[in-house]
Amino acid sequence: MPIVEPSADLMSPLNLFLQADIVVKLVMLGLLAASVWTWAIIFTHAIRLKRINRQTDSFEKDFWAAKDIDAFHARRSEEKLPIAVVMSAALDEWRRSTNTAIVDRAGTRERLASRMNAAVAAEVDRLGDRLNILATVGSVAPFVGLFGTVWGIMRSFTAIAGANNTSLAVVAPGIAEALFATAIGLFAAIPAVIAYNRLTHGLDRLEAKLGRFSDRFHATLSRELEVEIATGH
């Protein structure tokens, strides 16, 4: 019996999807939806992180150039930037701790550090929201695609046995449909893993930047505390 090669149209991605078993179709649709969701998260987080880094650098430069921190805080405290939140938390704790008859210097320094560290952690957690979805897609999608492949191949072998024909024209389409599910799983997983690593690295760099700002601002307030104690104010 001559071997009949499957046509190119029959092996196109659209035909592979349309001819697949219902279970494999559901797997493919789920993986495609995960891929779309993944790319939406990648673009939104990458653009937002780049914008925040640029604005943070500008904010910090203006902050250290300001002659009056209270006036600067009054002008810029409403900005929705992590560094602005850290600044506001520090100044709020500073006013609470120094607006007493007797100022506890050690306690004030400890509370300032605690408030700023908590503000940095909260802002990093907020910015990292939904990045865990990328990690989940990156780790789960290949196995979901593999499940579709295994199911499709099982169905293909069942069809081959029923047709009592092992020619390429009978075998190839079913196996191709099944392997297509794995390909879609990898298509969803690979960008998710790469983006998760890159975005997490960018978030770590922003956290380090906020940490350096906190340390420097904490030192500034500590020196100011020494001046106030020395002058009796």
Rank of each mutant, 00 (worst) to 15 (best):
Q55W: 04
I22Q: 07
L112V: 04
W39R: 09
A33P: 02
A65Y: 10
S114F: 04
D104F: 00
R109Q: 09
V85K: 10
R48V: 08
W94D: 01
L29W: 12
R95L: 02
A84P: 14
D70Y: 14
N132S: 15
I42R: 14
W94K: 03
S97K: 01
D104A: 11
A106P: 00
S97G: 11
V36M: 13
W37E: 11
A66T: 14
F72P: 13
F43K: 09
L31F: 13
V86S: 01
R130K: 13
T100A: 08
D21G: 14
A90F: 03
E110H: 03
T100M: 07
S114G: 04
I42C: 14
D92N: 04
P82W: 00
V27P: 00
H45L: 09
N132H: 14
V23I: 15
D129F: 08
P82C: 09
A71L: 15
S97I: 03
E60D: 13
I133E: 07
R54M: 08
V86K: 00
E93T: 01
V103I: 15
T108E: 01
E110A: 13
T38S: 14
Q55Y: 07
A113E: 02
I52D: 02
P82D: 04
A71P: 05
A121C: 07
A74Y: 10
A71T: 11
V137E: 02
A89M: 03
L131Q: 10
L127G: 11
T38W: 02
R95N: 01
I52F: 01
D21M: 05
D21A: 08
L91C: 09
T136D: 06
E60F: 03
V86M: 01
A106C: 02
A84V: 12
S88P: 00
G107L: 08
K80Y: 06
A46P: 00
D92Q: 13
E123T: 06
A65H: 12
D129A: 12
Q55K: 03
V103E: 05
L91I: 12
A66W: 12
W37L: 12
E79Q: 15
A40G: 15
T108D: 02
S35V: 08
D125I: 00
V86A: 03
E123L: 07
W37I: 06
A135F: 06
L127R: 12
K67Q: 15
M28A: 11
E110M: 09
V23C: 08
L91H: 10
A121T: 04
T44S: 14
A119S: 04
V103L: 07
A106F: 08
T108G: 04
L31Q: 02
M116C: 00
G30V: 11
A122I: 01
W37M: 15
V120K: 01
A122D: 01
M116Q: 02
A71V: 11
K50N: 10
T56V: 11
A40Q: 14
A33G: 14
A34R: 00
I41Y: 11
I133K: 07
A106N: 11
L31Y: 15
A84D: 13
S97D: 00
G107C: 06
R48W: 11
V103C: 04
I133N: 12
I42V: 15
A74E: 15
V23A: 03
M28W: 05
V24S: 07
E110D: 12
D70E: 13
T136C: 05
M87T: 06
Q55L: 11
A40E: 12
R109M: 08
D57K: 13
